[in-house]
Design a protein around this nucleic acid. Structure first.
Length: 197
DNA sequence: AGCACGATTAACT
DNA sequence: GTTAATCGTGCTC
């Protein structure tokens, strides 16, 4: 399969977040192919969105979100964790989708090595778990995911029927002010055990 | 130069 | 349910 085209990612961020569910996230790492089906994602939309890192404007950290869609935005948080996002919307408008969970389907043994032998449902059921399982860190920031022969990309996969998709407020927003705190911009697959806990 | 805090996780009680 | 781990980022002095 080939990477999803830039036109997939350059649409509205919430549409991309919802339609990413069912897609296959692929990581080529040291000759191994690691992959999983996206089952949870969140939209972060523009400088107005007080939960979005771009609320502080364009900085070295946030600049990739201002660039073209289809690039990775990987950032470091809590002194130890890496998070994977895909840049969305039109160039110049800062927005991205956080990949929060995937269902592992390829390269599971390698993922377990990178995750200290965690069992299947704990391998990738959280945004920092999946980056660890896929060997994603600062070196994977700013990659073009639409380029064939990349080390990281997204393919089409399953198509979940609309009635198995749920939405909810985003996770971990802390003291983010309303209305942003309650925006139902998290999308997940209902009753899927690989969604974050 | 120093500070508060974070789109989390794992290991506790 | 609670908390330690651990450091880049953006802001203030």
């Amino acid at each position: 399969m080939k990477p999803l085209p830039r036109s997939f990612f350059s649409r509205s961020t919430r549409t991309v977040a919802r339609e990413l569910l069912g897609c296959r996230l692929v990581r080529q790492l040291n000759g191994d192919r690691l992959a999983g089906i996206v089952v949870e994602a969140e939209a972060y939309i523009g400088e107005q969105d007080q939960a979005c890192h771009a609320k502080v404007g364009k900085t070295p950290r946030t600049q990739v979100m201002y660039g073209p869609a289809g690039f990775s935005y990987v950032y470091f948080t809590y002194g130890m964790h890496w998070m994977l996002n895909v840049v969305t919307a039109k160039e110049g408008f800062p927005a991205a989708v956080l990949i929060r969970a995937i269902q592992p389907v390829e390269g599971i043994e390698v993922m377990q090595d990178l995750r200290r032998g965690k069992n299947l449902v704990d391998l990738c059921s959280g945004p920092a778990k999946l980056t660890q399982a896929l060997g994603i860190a600062r070196g994977q920031n700013g990659l073009d995911l639409c380029q064939p022969s990349s080390e990281l990309w997204i393919e089409s996969g399953l198509v979940f029927p609309r009635h198995v998709i749920a939405s909810s407020p985003r996770i971990g927003l802390g003291e983010t002010p309303e209305p942003w705190r309650s925006k139902p911009w998290r999308y997940l697959v209902k009753n899927n055990p690989f969604v974050s806990k």
